[in-house]
Every structure is written in C-alpha cells, then in structure tokens.
Design a protein around this nucleic acid. Structure first.
Length: 479
RNA sequence: CGGGGCGUAGCGCAGUCUGGUAGCGCGACGGUUUUGGGUACCGUAGGUCGGGGGUUCGAAUCCUCUCGCCCCGACCA
C-alpha cells in the first residue's frame, strides 16, 4: 500500500539508524536525514511582487516553487516533498477503493481525439504540437480517449468488469490567463481515473465509490471538501459533483447549508464493495444543500433555516463524472455481455487536482507568519531547532532526537544553521512544520526540550523521550 | 482575447518626466559580536538597466519594433 514512500522508510529502517553524511545516491532520497545547512531551501524574507494571493506568496517565500513561465513551475525540494506526500495519499486511497494505478503519456496522438470528435471541440486550451514527421500531437489536457483506447485493445468480456484504472500525470491546459500560482497553472499534476462497467447501475456504484474515496482523501489532508452538484462542462455527462474547499480566494461562488461543513467521514469503515453502505455515505454527504453558482437554485436555498444559509467562495479540488457511453460508443469500447451480445461499456471519469491541492491547503491553513501544514501532508513531521549551534550538549541532544525520531519513521528537519534563534523560528514558522522541538543549553540544564505546536503556538517542556513519544502518538493517526 | 500596469544585482525598489555612462534596503560572502523571536558593526562580491533597431557627441532615460511577466474582465481542475 505504502508503495511510494516505502523505499525511503524501508532503507532507513534497514540502515537501522542515522547517516549524517549527504546522500549522493541520487535515487533513494534519505529525507529523514535532513540537516537544513545541507538542504536547498531558498526562503525569501520579502514578498515577491508577482504573487497576489496568500498561497502563492507563501509557496514562493517558503522556497517551494519557482516559476519558469506563466503557469509553469519548478518544484523545489520542500514543495516537491509536499507534492509527493499528497500524491501518496491519493494513491493509497485509490488502491484502498480497489482502483488500479497505471501511467499514460503526457503526449497523445491527435487521431484519438478525432475519433471522439473532441479534437475540434476542445479549443485553444489544448496545446497542439507537430512532431518531426508533421504528425499532429497534443499535450494531454485529460485522458478519456487514451484510456478508452487502452481498454478496447485488451478488454472484451463482461467478466473483466468492473474495472477502474487511474493515473497521476502532468496535464497541460493552455489557459488564457494562468494565475494564483499552482492553483491555476497551465501545467498541473492531476489524478484522473476512469471506470468501466457493464451497466449504468454498476457505473453509478463506481461514481459513489469515488465520492467516498475522495472524501477520505481530502480529510486525510486536513481539508473539508464539500461535494456540490455541478455542471458537466466540456467533458460532458449525466451526473457530476465537484469537491470544493471553502476559502475566500476561491474561484467559484458557492451556496450551502452550514451543516454540511460539520459532516465527517472520520475513521469509520466503509466497505467499497457494499453498494448500500457506499450509497448511504454519499446520501449523507449530498442531501444537504450545497451548490456552485452554476447550479444554484434560489428557491431550494431559501428553504434552509436562515442561520444555516451560507454564501461563500470555494476552490475546486476534484470532480467526478458519470457519462455513460459517450466515449465507448464512438470509439468502439465494447464487451460481450452474459447474453453473448456486444455492448458499449458505461464509463465515468474522476479527477483530483494534485498540484492545485498545495495551494488549496495553504489557503485553508496559514497565518500571518506563514504556512501551517496539517499533519497529514507536512513535508517534515517536525523541525528541530538547535538554539546554540556548536554547543556540545545542544548538538548531541539535537542529533539524538533526530535519530530517535528517524528510527520511529518520523522524518524531521534539523535546523543546524549557525543563525540566531529568531531567524530559525521565523524560518520554521514560514515553512509551516506543525511541530517544533526547541533545544538549547538553558533547557538542557534541566534535562528538557520544548515542544511547540505551530497551529496554537502553545509550548510544553518535557524530556526528549516524552517529546518523541508525543510525536509518535500524534503521527500514528496520519500514516 | 479586451482593458490596465510592470521589466534596473538573488529578492523588494529608486533613478526615466528634465539624456552625461547606475544607486538604496534586504539577502549572499568574509570578519567581529556568543546571541532564547528575522542582533549590531566593519568589509567584499554581484547589474551588457528584458531584447533588436533608431535619434544623439553621448541612451536605463527619447522614438520604434519585439519578447516576457502581473492585475481586472470573459473562460477553466
């Protein structure tokens, strides 16, 4: 399950401890052995003028991204770690729901899109490219055609269904006006999944299964994402919900019953194969009024008790569609049914904006000092701040802590720079690690270090073993 | 794509109106300071002023073309 991070954790466990030398393998990133003095974290004290909204500013200031062109970014080490972590959560929850990971290319032949009729429909957002043989190619903005092509080439029987394939891949949409940093880039990382089912009922179950897996995915990231009935837009379909994170900087106006923000999936067990179970969760989360401006119905909205009637803005972080045979029919994706006749499969597609989630999470979780990462997605589990670099006791205590946490599988960032305390604290606050362990001669004289919550600012002094135990306990809830 | 704005050192900016060969703060680097919330002082390095063409004895500055980026709008994960 933990197939993304496994190599790092495993090689760490195998090593059985700590290697304080720089890792030069270039493949297994020993992230848990990170000294800030050897890391690449180009933080900025001042706000870059190009960034307007808070998540964009903070991502630039925290040294997470560097813009390379309008809407196109390099992911610097810190940003890359969060991106990978979000990706990992998405993978885990998709696999848990029974969906199968794969990978399709970024470049696609135009002919596939001519089959579905979308080559002409898609418009300028599609980046069209010619190869050296003058063949028409495109940088994929989505993958319905390609997955349908994969499916029809290899699947021919109803016995192979149901099947849901997904991948996490870079997409490109040549937006007229990219903005808000990674929230609306032209190049973006997206999880997109496609279900193939024999009947509409089966496909609706796949739709519901995705809704539940998405709710769990967002909750693990510390987000409240509300499913809202939405227009289908250019992908086209009969049924669709968008998932929106409430934030004043959101691009969509949303109307909702405030009670929906109280709904939590929590750690309740949902059997993804149990249709009734899955359906009941979907009903629980979609019964209360929650719609974007596209589908807003003022009459229905007015029936909500006034004190619960809310209008706000939201950031779209995912969308699920059922679209039936829209692609399977024109592209000939059929299976032979139990009665021996060929029928086009029922499909749906389901997307999560992986790179965009970084921005959404920051919009939802920050303060004037910087980012506040939810434990589920933090790039490092804690920051260790050595207040007196060079002091033998402080150095030893920090390295001991570092080792103790690492052997528990908690990857931390050790600020071993020769800087003033204030500079170190400011950096930690900016990059938003949820926990900070402060180690200095003053506390060590009493045998204690200080554990501070980034979110509340509350500090508590305790012996190092207690700090390790506390963090182990906290992160047990965020695998 | 319509409207507006901006490109000068890694970042934030001044200098452009009124041409005379580039400056400030932060950061970086080297010292001193031994420091519990971006410390202070001393010193050093770093810029063909987005690019091309033109006017001029002389262009960051004036003219022109061009590229890039940002903001508002329409559009979108």
């Amino acid at each position: 399950m933990d197939w993304r991070a496994a190599c790092c954790t495993a090689c760490l466990r195998q090593a059985g401890g700590i290697d304080t030398s720089r890792d030069n393998s270039g493949f297994h990133p020993r992230w848990s052995l990170m000294r800030l003095s050897r890391y690449f974290l180009p933080v900025l004290k001042e706000n870059p003028s190009e960034a307007q909204i808070v998540s964009h500013r903070l991502m630039l200031r925290a040294g997470m991204i560097k813009q390379q062109a309008a809407g196109i970014y390099s992911w610097l080490p810190l940003g890359y770690r969060v991106l990978r972590r979000i990706e990992e959560i998405v993978h885990q929850e998709q696999v848990r729901a029974g969906h199968i990971p794969m990978l399709m290319p970024t470049l696609q032949p135009a002919d596939l899109w001519r089959e579905s009729g979308r080559y002409d429909d898609y418009g300028q957002e599609m980046l069209r490219i010619k190869d050296r043989h003058e063949r028409d190619m495109l940088f994929g903005p989505t993958n319905e055609e390609m997955i349908t092509d994969v499916f029809r080439a290899h699947v021919g029987s109803y016995k192979d269904l149901p099947m849901t394939l997904y991948h996490i891949q870079w997409k490109f949409r040549d937006e007229m006006r990219p903005r808000f940093g990674v929230m609306r880039g032209r190049e973006f990382l997206m999880k997109d999944g496609y279900n193939f089912d024999l009947t509409k009922d089966d496909a609706i179950h796949a739709y519901n299964r995705h809704m539940v897996s998405y709710l769990r995915t967002y909750e693990r990231m510390g987000l409240t994402a509300i499913p809202m009935r939405a227009d289908s837009g250019p992908i086209g379909g009969d049924d669709t919900h968008e998932f929106l994170v409430l934030a004043s900087t959101g691009e969509s106006e949303v109307f909702y019953d405030s009670a929906v923000t109280e709904l939590k999936l929590g750690d309740r067990a949902v059997d993804y194969d149990d249709r009734a179970d899955v359906l009941s969760v979907c009903q629980e989360f979609t019964t209360l009024y929650a719609r974007t401006d596209e589908t807003h119905d003022a009459a229905l909205f007015d029936q909500i008790p006034e004190e619960r009637r809310k209008v706000g803005r939201g950031i779209e972080v995912g969308q699920i569609f059922y679209f039936g045979t829209k692609y399977s029919e024109p592209m000939g994706a059929t299976v032979v049914g139990p009665d021996g006749t060929k029928v086009p499969v029922h499909m749906g597609s389901h997307g999560i904006g992986v790179s965009r989630l970084l921005g959404a999470i920051i919009e939802a979780s920050h303060d004037e000092k910087g980012i506040i990462w939810p434990e589920g997605v933090t790039p490092f589990k804690a920051g260790i701040v050595n207040l007196k670099q060079g002091d033998e006791a402080a150095n030893a205590a920090c390295e001991g802590l570092y080792k103790a946490l690492a052997t528990k599988g908690l990857e931390c960032l050790y600020d071993d720079r020769d800087e003033r305390a204030g500079a170190k604290f400011a950096t930690m606050d900016l990059i938003g690690l949820p926990w900070r362990i402060t180690v200095g001669p003053r506390g060590l004289a009493n045998g204690v270090v200080e554990l501070t919550s980034r979110r509340t600012g509350e500090s508590e002094e305790m012996v190092t073993e207690a700090a390790v135990a506390r963090l182990v306990e906290i992160y047990a809830a965020h695998p």
